[in-house]
Design a protein around this nucleic acid. Structure first.
Length: 491
RNA sequence: CGGGGUGUAGCGCAGCCCGGUUAGCGCGCCUGCUUUGGGAGCAGGAAGUCGCGAGUUCGAAUCUCGCCACCCCGACCA
């Protein structure tokens, strides 16, 4: 294992890559764009899943599972949807391999060609709506509130660990409602759940708003988004919640009888967050020494490192460590006692900093003598000695404090990274300089949006909700504008 | 898909230009002793189809041709 990471200032992309791999979250695999998520990384995802899952269930959603493979014809039905995803779907064309007698190699059996090709889901709207058609007949069947935890495949040209992989994990919610209003409320409810989750648990400050037509989900009427600024000044979309209108209902003919016995198309939403959140968490909080994990998602919240010279001291430390472990476990704090004797304490310190364990407790001869322990927090690198008494509660409070501190840093960073700009020259120089969110006037046309993108690589990340009415002129075209939108260069 | 790079021990690399001992170094691993408050030291040891396939040659990690894979940078995307 290399001793040092590339620093963020030297090469942010390299820092990120090394960090993901060296901290043991994930590995590259034999297939381009597909990654192996290792136990330490998967443990974080499991925590994310269980927290979100509870929130979904608390708001009336149920989990179900729909198939990975979707007949190509289903995919055809909603025009915008096909158009949006066509470029990146993987297609299954055959169902068998055979031995080639000539080369003695395994080849695709040409006789096993599928009559109808199957696509590997890039998202599940089509298969779900073709199923909902049979599930929904009456207003009594509504609302239908389903979520699934699944993997999807989108053939990516330029993959990046966690941020953009060809296969990724996510949850996708798909709901059907009797009224437009109710569907919009659902999409916003979920956006609120995502916001709370990202801020309270992942510790990332997010901003929300509506996507422009060119950035919205293929097949949606409106896409609500959550966005944040990473440490390098680039923006990242962390999740989306879509109001789908009646587009899929009409494409798949999903109608219900209302109380008056008249047939009406249902109103739909879909929404998702992915393993990308892990990448965002890394890029938001971590430093040149390694990960900084928010306590509420850290697989290990506290690590105890013993320091000893002789067996007698060692066994006294073990005793003390056991006491602390009991105290912490009683408070539901996850703790690891690293009592391996293969590595020096210094090695362990560096290792757990790399892995982002929020709190480290060191116990050595001095501490035994003074009836203390040394407690070090990962986020600030601060070290302090605490007396033996009531260590559990000290740690508990410290974990809370770290969680808050991480979020507050993210919040102030996001505020510092947001700038109002009125001149296109300033807009461009700001992008070159530090990036971040740029709040600027836009004339509302797709043409201007496109031109700005081509010239600066910045896109409109979102149109803020309740953006205050403000007379102004478009930063690019000089035409009249009534509100500011948020631009950024994005991942 | 374009440009660049890499492929040699579990990991990171050198060797290749200019072919020739038994393919080397660091980390890790195993054994032993000494160590342990910020990535420990010494001694000994195990571990390699040199990405794959052809070719040139007395001889190929090294030269030639072909193939494959991955990474990085750009255009598309959660």
């Amino acid at each position: 294992m290399g001793k040092h990471l590339t620093s963020r200032s030297e090469d942010f992309a390299k820092w990120y890559n090394e960090l993901v791999i060296k901290s043991g979250l994930a590995d590259h695999s034999g297939v381009r764009g597909c990654m192996v998520i290792k136990p330490y990384g998967w443990a974080i995802w499991e925590k994310m899943q269980s927290i979100l899952d509870k929130k979904f269930k608390a708001t009336g959603h149920q989990n179900a599972y729909f198939p990975l493979l979707i007949p190509k014809s289903y995919f055809n039905k909603e025009a915008q949807h096909v158009k949006g995803f066509a470029k990146e779907v993987a297609v299954v064309t055959h169902y068998r391999l055979k031995h080639d007698p000539k080369t003695n190699e395994i080849i695709v059996d040409p006789d096993a060609k599928l009559e109808e090709e199957l696509i590997i889901r890039p998202t599940s709207e089509t298969i779900i709506w073709s199923t909902y058609k049979n599930w929904i007949q009456s207003y009594r069947d509504l609302p239908l509130l389903i979520n699934q935890w699944a993997n999807v495949v989108r053939w990516e040209m330029r993959p990046r660990l966690f941020l953009r992989t060809t296969e990724f994990f996510w949850q996708e919610g798909h709901t059907a409602h009797a009224t437009e209003q109710e569907a919009i409320e659902e999409a916003k409810l979920i956006l609120g759940i995502y916001t709370d989750f990202l801020q309270d648990y992942v510790g990332i400050s997010v901003s929300t708003g509506i996507k422009t037509d060119s950035e919205k989900f293929a097949g949606a009427i409106n896409t609500y988004t959550l966005e944040s600024v990473m440490q390098d000044g680039k923006a990242l979309q962390l999740g989306t919640s879509h109001f789908l209108g009646q587009n899929f209902a009409k494409a798949f003919d999903v109608q219900y009888s209302n109380k008056e016995g008249k047939l009406e198309y249902v109103w739909a939403t879909s929404w998702g967050v992915t393993t990308r959140m892990i990448g965002a968490m890394i890029m938001s909080h971590s430093d040149d020494d390694g990960l900084i994990l928010p306590p509420l998602l850290a697989p290990i919240q506290v690590v105890i490192v013993p320091i000893y010279k002789d067996d007698e001291t060692h066994s006294r430390i073990n005793e003390k460590a056991e006491q602390i472990i009991k105290e912490l476990e009683a408070l539901d704090i996850s703790v690891k006692y690293d009592n391996e004797d293969g590595q020096s304490p210094g090695w362990k310190f560096a290792e757990y900093e790399l892995k982002g364990v929020p709190i480290r407790i060191a116990i050595g001869p001095k501490d035994l003598e003074n009836r203390e322990v040394e407690i070090a927090r990962r986020d600030t690198k601060e070290k302090k000695n605490y007396p033996n008494t009531d260590i559990g509660n000290v740690i508990k409070d410290l974990l809370d404090e770290i969680q808050k501190k991480i979020f507050n840093s993210s919040k102030s960073f996001q505020q510092e990274s947001t700038h109002e700009v009125d001149k296109f020259d300033d807009f461009k120089s700001l992008l070159n300089d530090k990036g971040g969110f740029i709040s600027a006037h836009w004339d509302g046309t797709a043409e201007t949006e496109e031109k700005i993108k081509n010239e600066t690589k910045a896109t409109i990340r979102y149109i803020p909700f309740n953006g205050k009415e403000e007379e102004g002129t478009c930063i690019y075209s000089g035409k009249k504008s009534k509100r500011r939108v948020i631009f950024a260069q994005a991942y």
